[in-house]
Structures are given as structure tokens and as C-alpha cells.
Write a protein that binds this DNA or RNA. Structure first.
Length: 649
RNA sequence: GCUGAUGUAGCUCAGGGGUAGAGCACUUCCUUGGUAAGGAAGAGGUCAUGGGUUCAAUUCCCAUUAUCAGCUCCA
């Protein structure tokens, strides 16, 4: 007797092995129609695979991650089948599922390419294959058999994968004329796949190593219903409308010029205004937390970076050395601010009574990112870090670290970033040569981060091998409109630079001691932060931050003078106000300024001029009635204060 | 850096071996208006750059460059 326990606690008994699909059929025919995969004792299985002993099971439909996973995995196989039919001789790498869909890495026969315009043809072939309603059959196979089989296919990629596998754990999946090495699980039959969209084609190195051959990667997504695909495509379109590059252009925030150089953003007046507001805001917060502003130059002697270790590590991948007319002098555009700040620390003797010392600077740095890496404002070659370096005693480290987390919390709260990932990036224990510094210091630093994060109640993920070369870090990542993850805030513990720069303080014991350093940038960089902020708000920035808070719209040219008067009064009270005095009708002015995402529009005509008032229109809300100029000024100021007060608490 | 695609007016894009178009934006004029597009006229382009094929290239071919998607990288 086989006892199958279901998630609701009930138990079904069978006299012989039973498949997930059999059980679903026993429960209800409708469930059987929708079910996609089954978890058997914490392992996700095919529905058709017989369960031979007592088990706890959970059946998965489309709504479950496990259901989608099997669905997309099988879709990837259908895509491979279609490609094998359309491009005979293609060799296959890996074809996993991803968060939204799946991809397959393929090596096409010599001279053949798949371009975006070919995707439609593959899609059609896939749908044709899916409609053949082929069973997807699992097959255990020995390592020798597997090697033999893929040798006849001459598929070196699969052979490489098989060689890494243990004998006895190798399975094949077969559907129609296609067989693939695969761990599964899969759908029982291809017919469930009703709607397919191949999204893009791009190159990808075999096994992610740039020394290997570049394969062709095709991304796709599939659905059990055509309607779900349509909804997905609409969402994708919506997301693209939030792209910061598009909105940045629309709102005149920033631009790029080939004449200036790639990856070098030019901030236009409105963008500069936005950045300035962010800087003012952060400076205010940092002042409360005991930071002091410093200013350092954009270049530094090469020796500075030799001391810090950056030259050895990144020197050849940087903007090249600037050589002066005077022989022997070599300078580097600064790729980071920490060495300069270390020199400020060293400028005079420090006592334990001075610590912690917190030097902050909106420091512009230059890094020669590879050309293919550049991306709008999120990845650039010249950018401004909201940088600071905290020099403290080892005892103060954890407390200081926690205070930095608090600053990041304040920022995320002010800008309503709720959906972030906190990642602890540690050293790769198997590749310690990538890093500088002693094991002992690394362990202390890693421990400090782990404890501080946990004491702050942060939900973290830990990544090995993601640390900076001089120390571990805690990074805050936020997604952009289309789901790409970007690192914003970062906090790094560093025992190494203090050593390399021979930083010291005199302790209470009158002995020299070495301080610990924290590198931190809550925004990360102004550029990337603004990019993510644009995508999150779709350009509708909070009132306190937005470049143009108010635009006054005169009904006709006769009221332009009054409109300017209103705007002057508001500007004097620090409300950022402009006048739209174009020779257009009021409806047109309203439309254009709504599209420009202006929070408040003030309509002024004869009535308002007479009464020294304004007719207020709030973005997205329409007419809010009439107020006197003073009333409106007080109203909007209190709204800004409220927004900023929420941050202080 | 690698693979693939793209590059036509300020923006979004159409076109195509015989010297280039639309909508929006811009300029001028008319209109002086009450809560999401008033009307007319005009100006604006070495069709990314450099070669090649051709009687003729913006169009076809090659290279370069920038942008886009992804990979790799990210102090």
C-alpha cells in the first residue's frame, strides 16, 4: 500500500505506483487539466513519473513557480526541437528557465545566424510542434550510453555536461523527434503550450566564460493561454515606457553627446536641479549623522593608486595615465575617492577622541567601463558618488555600520523604495588570490557586516565571490522597469586601505593604533540613482524633489503679467515655479504641462487677477478650486514639509 | 571587449539605385481663449562616417563609429 499525503493533510492510498497525473485525476478532472508538475517529498517531478513509495506531494498549476518552471522548461525543449528542424546540425548548450520564460544557447552550423527577424519562423514551428501533442518521456540512462549517444550527434557541449555528471543520475527527455539531456521536470505532453513569444536573440559565452566560444542565445516565453501572452506583452510595453533613457529625454533631464564621449552624461538644467535636490537632502541627513564635507581634486598621482592597490588591480583597464610636461609625473583621473580621503585623514595626527571621523564628498570619478557595458545613466564612465569614508576604532565598527544602514533606510523611505534586495558580498573562499589583505582581517570584516545586518533586521542574501578586492560589502539592489537588478547603496568594511596608507590614531594607552574604514554610498551614484528613481516614479517625482513644482498658466496674454507676479511670489518662497506664457489656449497649456508631469498647475484669468488668487489644478486629479496666492504658498509648503518630516521620524 | 540588430529633420518614424517624406516640436502671422491638442504659412536633413560597385548610391557591398539586446566585467 502506498500512502500519498496531500497538502491539506488528507491521505490517498494506492496499491501500485501512481503518477502525479493519476492523483490529480482522482481529485478532479479539472485539476488534471490544469496541473503542470508535482513536488514529491521536496523534489519537483514530472506528472507522469510513477511514485512507488509513501510520499508527501503537492500538485502545481500555472500559478505556482514550480508549475511555470516545468512549463517553460518544456517550452525550451520545444524551441530546441524547432531549431533542430529548421537549422539541422545545430548543437545545443543549455536551455534553462528564467524568472520570466526560458532561453536556449545554441551553436549554429558554420555560416548560419539567427536574427531577430527569424524568430517568428521559429515561433511558428514551435506552435506546430506543440500542436502535435507529443508525450514528453523521461528516460534513465547510464553515463556511457549518454556519452555514446551525444558522440554520434557530435555535440561537444552536451558531452562536456555529461562528463561532469555522476553515473546513475543522468536522464533524457524525449518528445517527437527530439531528445535532450535534461534533469527535468517536464510537462507530460507538449499540447499545454498554447502561446509562444520569442523575445530576443543575443550572444552568450559557453558556460559564461569569455574565453569560450560565443553561442547564440534565444530568449522566449510561453503561456497556456493566448490571453496571458497578450497581458504579458502589454506589461512589457508599459515597462518600456518607464525607461529612464526615454523619460530623461522627454523631460530634458540629461543627454549624451558623441562629441563629448560615450558614457559621459550631460545634465541639463532640469536634471541638474533634480540632482541638487537629492544632494541637499542627503547632506542634511548626513549632517545629522555627524558627517563633514570634504572636497578633493579629479586627478591624483599614480603613486596614490599604487599605494591603495587600485593601480595594480584596475590600472590597465582605466583611462590611461596623464603624463605632465615635467618628466616623471604621472596622474590618473580618479576612479574612486578613498585614497584622497585617506590622505586627508593622514594630514594630521588623530586621537581616539576624534573618532569616528566621517568624510563625505559628492566625488566625481571616472572608470573606463567596457563599451558594451554602457547603459543610459545606470552604467557610465564618469559619475558622481555620494561617497563617504568613516574612520573608526575596531570597537566602533559595528555601531557605525548600523548607522549607515539607517541612512539608507531613510533614503529608501523618502523615495518609497520598498522592493529592494540586501546582498552581503563575501570573498570567494576558493580564490583568495583575487583579494588583498590578511585572512584575519577579512574574517573580522565579514563578521562585522553579517552581525550588523542581522541586528538591523535586514533580510539578506549572501553571495560568495562578490566582495570588493579590499573588503566585503553590503549592497542594496533595486530593479529597473524591465526587471534588471542594479546596485544602488553600498557599505564596505575595509581593514586593508588603513594598512596600506599607514593610517593611525593615538589610543587612550598613548599607543599608535590602526583605524578601520567604512566606505559607503547610500545612493551609490547620482547617475544610477536618478535612473532608478525615474523608472520607479515614471518621472512623477515627489513634490519636494521634482524640478518644476508649479507652472502658472495665464488664460490669455492679457494675464501674463499677473502670472509672472504669482510666479515671482512663489519663487521667493522657494517654490520652484515657471510661467507658460505661450500663445496657446488654456486647454492646450493644461495638456502639455500635465504631460510634462508638473505636480501643480495654476490657472489665472480675469477672476483670479481681480481676487489676487489662483485656480489650482493637481496633477492627475483635475481642478482643486481657487485659493489666494498666500493660501496656495502655505498649502504647497506644508505638503513639502510633510513629505520631508516623514523622513525625519 | 564579444555576438547580433539598428542608425533618415530637435523627437517618433515611413520610404527607397535616378539628389527625400509624415506627425509632433520649432519660427512667423491670425486668434485672446476658463480646465487634456484653435487656424494658416514657414524654416529645418552631406539620409552616422569613410571607402568600394555603378552612367548614377541615402538605398547594394566592405570597414569604422555610436546606439540597442544579451554575454562577460563592475574599485
Amino acid at each position: 500500500m502506498i500512502n500519498i499525503s496531500l497538502p491539506d493533510g488528507s491521505i490517498k492510498q494506492y496499491t501500485q505506483p501512481v503518477s502525479g497525473m493519476d492523483i490529480a485525476n482522482d481529485i478532479s478532472p479539472r485539476l488534471a487539466k490544469e496541473v503542470l508538475s508535482v513536488t514529491v517529498n521536496d523534489e519537483v517531478w514530472d506528472l507522469s513519473r510513477p511514485i512507488a513509495s509513501d510520499a508527501k506531494i503537492n500538485l502545481h498549476k500555472w500559478d505556482d513557480k514550480e508549475g511555470k518552471h516545468a512549463f517553460w522548461h518544456s517550452s525550451a525543449h520545444i524551441m530546441a526541437e524547432a531549431i533542430e528542424a529548421l537549422y539541422p546540425g545545430t548543437k545545443f548548450g543549455i536551455g534553462p528557465t528564467i524568472e520570466n520564460g526560458f532561453y536556449y544557447d545554441i551553436d549554429l552550423p558554420e555560416g548560419q545566424v539567427v536574427a531577430e527577424k527569424d524568430l517568428q519562423v521559429i515561433e511558428n514551428k514551435m506552435l506546430e510542434l506543440a500542436r502535435q501533442k507529443n508525450d514528453i518521456v523521461r528516460e534513465d540512462i547510464s553515463k556511457d550510453e549518454a556519452l555514446k549517444m551525444f558522440r554520434t550527434k557530435d555535440d561537444q557541449y552536451k558531452l562536456e555536461l555529461i562528463n561532469d555528471l555522476e553515473d546513475g543520475t543522468i536522464t533524457l527527455y524525449r518528445q517527437g523527434n527530439f531528445t535532450d539531456l535534461c534533469r527535468g521536470p517536464h510537462l507530460p505532453n507538449t499540447e499545454a503550450v498554447k502561446a509562444i513569444k520569442l523575445l530576443s536573440v543575443a550572444g552568450a559565452y559557453w558556460r559564461g566564460n569569455e574565453k569560450n566560444k560565443m553561442l547564440t542565445r534565444i530568449y522566449g516565453i510561453s503561456f497556456p493561454k493566448a490571453k496571458l501572452l497578450e497581458e504579458f506583452l502589454v506589461l512589457l510595453e508599459e515597462a518600456k515606457k518607464r525607461d529612464h533613457r526615454k523619460i530623461g529625454k522627454e523631460m530634458d533631464l540629461f543627454t549624451f553627446s558623441q562629441e563629448v564621449g560615450m558614457g559621459l552624461p550631460l545634465w541639463m538644467p532640469k536634471g541638474a536641479q533634480l540632482r541638487e535636490q537629492l544632494e541637499i537632502f542627503l547632506k542634511k541627513v548626513q549632517k545629522k549623522f555627524g558627517y563633514e564635507q570634504v572636497i578633493t581634486p579629479h586627478i591624483g598621482n599614480v603613486n596614490l593608486y599604487k599605494t591603495s592597490g587600485h593601480y595594480e588591480k584596475y590600472g590597465k583597464d582605466s583611462f590611461q595615465v596623464i603624463t605632465t610636461p615635467q618628466e616623471g609625473e604621472e596622474y590618473l583621473l580618479k576612479p574612486m575617492n578613498c585614497p584622497h580621503h585617506c590622505e586627508i585623514y593622514k594630514a594630521r595626527p588623530r586621537s581616539y577622541k576624534d573618532l569616528p571621523i566621517r568624510f563625505a564628498e559628492f566625488g566625481t570619478v571616472y572608470r573606463y567601463e567596457m563599451s558594451g557595458e554602457l547603459h543610459g545613466l545606470t552604467r557610465v564612465r564618469g559619475f558622481t558618488q555620494d561617497d563617504a569614508h568613516i574612520f573608526c576604532t575596531p570597537d566602533q565598527l559595528k555601531e557605525e555600520f548600523k548607522k549607515v544602514i539607517d541612512i539608507i533606510f531613510i533614503i529608501f523611505k523618502a523615495l518609497d523604495f520598498k522592493d529592494y534586495t540586501a546582498q552581503i558580498s563575501l570573498r570567494d573562499p576558493n580564490n583568495k588570490t583575487k583579494y588583498i589583505g590578511s585572512d584575519e582581517n577579512w574574517e573580522k570584516a565579514e563578521q562585522a557586516i553579517i552581525e550588523a545586518a542581522s541586528e538591523k533586521g535586514l533580510n539578506t542574501v549572501t553571495e560568495l565571490g562578490e566582495a570588493a578586492f579590499y573588503g566585503p560589502k553590503l549592497d542594496f539592489m533595486i530593479r529597473d522597469a524591465v526587471g534588471r537588478n542594479w546596485q544602488l547603496g553600498t557599505i564596505q568594511v575595509d581593514y586593508n586601505l588603513p594598512e596600506r596608507f599607514q593610517l593611525e590614531y593615538t589610543g587612550a594607552d598613548n599607543q599608535k593604533h590602526r583605524p578601520v574604514m567604512i566606505h559607503r554610498a547610500p545612493f551609490g551614484s547620482m547617475e544610477r540613482f536618478v535612473a532608478v528613481l525615474i523608472e520607479h516614479t515614471a518621472g512623477k517625482f515627489p513634490l519636494w524633489l521634482t524640478p518644476d513644482q508649479v507652472v502658472v498658466l495665464p488664460i490669455s496674454e492679457k494675464y501674463n503679467d499677473y502670472a509672472r507676479k504669482v510666479s515671482n511670489i512663489l519663487n521667493i518662497s522657494d517654490i520652484r515655479t515657471a510661467v507658460d506664457d505661450r500663445n496657446e489656449k488654456i486647454g492646450r497649456k493644461i495638456r502639455d504641462n500635465e504631460l510634462k508631469r508638473i505636480p501643480y498647475l495654476l490657472i489665472v484669468g480675469e477672476q483670479e487677477q481681480e481676487a489676487e488668487s489662483v485656480a489650482v489644478r493637481q496633477q492627475g486629479q483635475g481642478d482643486k478650486g481657487t485659493m489666494t496666492i498666500d493660501e496656495f504658498a502655505r498649502f504647497i509648503k506644508s505638503e513639502v514639509e510633510q513629505q520631508l518630516a516623514a523622513i525625519d521620524n
